[in-house]
Structure formats: C-alpha cells, structure tokens
C-alpha cells in the first residue's frame, strides 16, 4: 500500500507542474547602434541604450503581478518581448510553454497597450466584432461590452470616445479571447476614479477564475492594493521581487519609535540591523531591518515606554530601490 502511495506521488507532482504562465529567462534588449549599425553614422553606435539588461521572470498561473518602476525602467520593452512584438537580443520567452506568437495565435494571452491601437472610423461594437472574428474562440461581444462598462456607447464611433472610454474599449478587446494571461501596460491611464475602481473589480473577478494578470504601472497604490506580487524594475533590471510587505521590508525595514529620556544612541546604533537613530521631542526613532531585536532591547534594557513599530510604506521602498542613488542591483532577491 505504501508503495502505491509513494509511486503515485511523482505523478501528482507532475500534474501540478503545469507550464508557467510566463517564463522569461535572461532577457536583454538594447536600442541604438546595435548589430546592424553599419548604416548608422559611427558616433550614434556609441549611444547604445540597454533598455532591458538581464530580466528573468517566472510567473505562475493565477498570480497578479505588478511590474513597477519609474518611467524608462524597461517595463514596456519587457512587455513587448513577452508579447513577441519585439525580439530580445538574447534570452528566451515562453508563455504557457508556447512561443509568444504561438500563445497569441491560440488566444492564450492578450494585452492592453497604453495608447493607439484603435481605428477611429469604426464604432465601439464594430471594433469588438472585428477583433472577435480573428480568434477561434471568443466570449460574446455583448458580454465584454458589459464587463468593460461600455455597453451604452457601443454604437459610438471610436473618434468620439473619451480617453477613458477608449481605454475601456482596449480592455474589452483584450477580454474577448478570454485569455489565460492578461498583460496590461499602464491600464488605468486616462480613467477617472470610478472607471479605475470598476476596472480593478473586473480584474479581481477574473483572477478568481484563474486568469494570470501582469500589469505595468507607476501608481504605487495600484501595485500595493491589487497585486499579489510586485516586481520592481530599475534601469532594465529587477531590483526586488516579492509581496508588497516583503518589498517594504527590503527597502528599509521598519521604524521603531519610543519615549526615552537620555538614550544611549551609540549603543542603539550598534544593534544588529539598525540603519539610523534620531531623537526628536523626547521620542527616539530607529530605522531598522530587525524591528523585533530593537523592540526587545528597548523594552528589556532601557526605560523606554509608549513603543510603536511602523512599516515603511511602499513609496519609501520605491524611492529607496529605484532612485538614482540607490545601490546597484545585486543578484537574487
């Protein structure tokens, strides 16, 4: 009996190793005087910009991942490579075990791009009808109109739609193929508050159905509120990868404050994990990666009272990890 049980285990394990939604390995992409620079005017070839410089990303089915970084960090370039819109200089991409093009042909991945991509002389409904005919299997046009909240403007020409309405239309187009993986590049740009809330409600519902969502954003609160996992990019490299809480800790840990007269600042600064110690208005404030050790010390070895531990917010982490004076990214996370 035991034997049969153990022999079935590998089979069960095999079933759970479904292909990753995204498996990108060591992507590199440069712009400017690249290999075919024979045509360029010599000097230009020196100005090669490494837009993506060694990005590896493994995303499991069902994850909601925020791709967070300042402008020019390489988010859109990476997304283009995931979608097969551009070819990496080196590295490989596979989407559900297929090439990007193969995954697109099967309707397994779709994307909402930042701008463009719409014909002005078509109505909202016609745009969706046309897009729907290009896939083998699609959801009904009326259903995606409803989901994207544009059913009442279905007859409107695209050129008469506001920026937010056009963005909803792009979202509706991406929903048509009911993709396993949805890639969104700054998805809520141009949407008002209500539109943004509706949008994320729809995304959450989809995630419950097993849809994987990768979205690029520079809105910290969007990444914090809606992503299971945040991938922080800076200058074409991943500088942090984890849950919002993990990222916050990564940057500067927590801040421990307490009321303490005559604090022995050098002793506190010597505690493991402490970054800085300051005193203001009778309260001591300690930035540390190990808030437990500091709290234990303060309560056990000093007269500190009224102790508080606060998490640094994501913005602190964002600035610390992606700012120009941030340390160069190291391997691993």
């Amino acid at each position: 009996m035991n034997n049969t049980q153990t022999s079935t285990r590998p089979a069960t394990a095999g079933a759970t190793t479904a292909p990753l939604a995204v498996d990108a390995v060591d992507l590199h992409k440069s712009f400017g005087g690249t290999s075919k620079g024979g045509i360029s005017k010599g000097a230009a070839s020196a100005k090669t910009v490494k837009a993506v410089d060694g990005v590896s990303l493994a995303i499991k089915p069902g994850e909601i991942v925020a791709f967070l970084g300042p402008n020019g960090a390489g988010k859109t370039t990476t997304i283009d490579m995931l979608l097969g819109l551009s070819v990496p200089d080196s590295g490989t991409v596979s989407i559900y075990g297929n090439t990007p093009r193969g995954a697109i042909a099967r309707g397994q991945v779709s994307a909402v791009m930042q701008t463009g991509g719409l014909l002005k002389d078509l109505s909202v409904r016609e745009t969706l009808e046309l897009t729907a005919t290009l896939f083998a299997d699609t959801r009904p046009v009326d259903e995606v109109l409803e989901r994207a909240g544009i059913a009442e403007i279905a007859g409107r020409l695209v050129e008469k739609c506001s920026g937010g309405q056009q963005q909803r239309l792009r979202f509706a187009m991406a929903l048509l193929s009911d993709p396993g993986l949805l890639i969104l590049d700054e998805p809520t740009t141009g949407m008002d508050v209500e539109g943004r809330r509706d949008f994320w409600t729809a995304i959450r519902q989809d995630a419950a159905r097993g849809r994987t969502v990768v979205f690029a954003t520079h809105y910290l609160e969007e990444a914090d509120s809606y992503a299971d996992r945040i991938v922080l990019v800076r200058r074409g490299r991943i500088v942090a990868d984890g849950s919002a809480a993990e990222i916050k800790n990564l940057a500067a840990g927590r801040t421990v404050t307490a009321r303490l007269d005559h604090a022995d600042q050098p002793a506190l600064a010597a505690l493991p994990g402490v970054d800085s110690v300051s005193v203001r208005a009778g309260r001591i404030s300690i930035h540390t990666k190990d808030s437990d050790a500091v709290a234990r010390y303060l309560l056990g070895h000093t007269a500190a009272v009224d102790l508080e531990i606060t998490s640094n917010n994501l913005e602190d982490a964002f600035v610390a990890l992606t700012g120009d004076d941030a340390p160069a990214p190291t391997e691993g996370h």
Partner: peptide, 28 residues
C-alpha cells in the same frame, strides 16, 4: 457573480482557420 469552477479560464485553445481571414473582416 456566481463564479463556479467550471467557469475557469481555459488554456486548451485552437488556432483560427485561414490565419484569421474571414468575411466579417472583409465586410467591415
């Protein structure tokens, strides 16, 4: 909002015939 497990996103997909060429596209 009744989302059941049978309503899950399917990854078992087909490629369209004729590379996507179809009468509706031409008509539009």
């Amino acid at each position: 909002s009744a989302i059941t497990t049978t309503d899950r996103v399917s990854l078992d997909r087909r490629v369209p015939a004729a590379g996507g060429l179809n009468p509706t596209f031409v008509r539009i």
